[in-house]
Amino acid sequence: MTEWLLDGLLVIALVITAVAALLSRDLFRAVVVFIAFGLLMTVAWVRLQAPDIALAEAAIGAGLTGVLLLDAVSHLGSKRPGKRTQEGGEQ
């Protein structure tokens, strides 16, 4: 019973974080929610008895993807789009 509760809550949380990551108005918040989604995926892999994938997902989904996307957000968000940009972006 407890396991079903855990699995059910995990699945609901996965879907909610996925929706929030896609529909969030703020791009930075979307990426942060996506990192949370990656961490929940890690828990899901543990629940599916796949510790190898859980390790890889923890390192990649939560670590590398997060850094990569946050770096890109700070870069893309530094100026308003629509114009050809010449001056440097503040990194």
Partner: peptide
Amino acid sequence: LSHLLRKLLAFNVMGS
């Protein structure tokens, strides 16, 4: 979604 990074997020969600 139109923003390219959001498309990328959606692509990753689909992959998961």
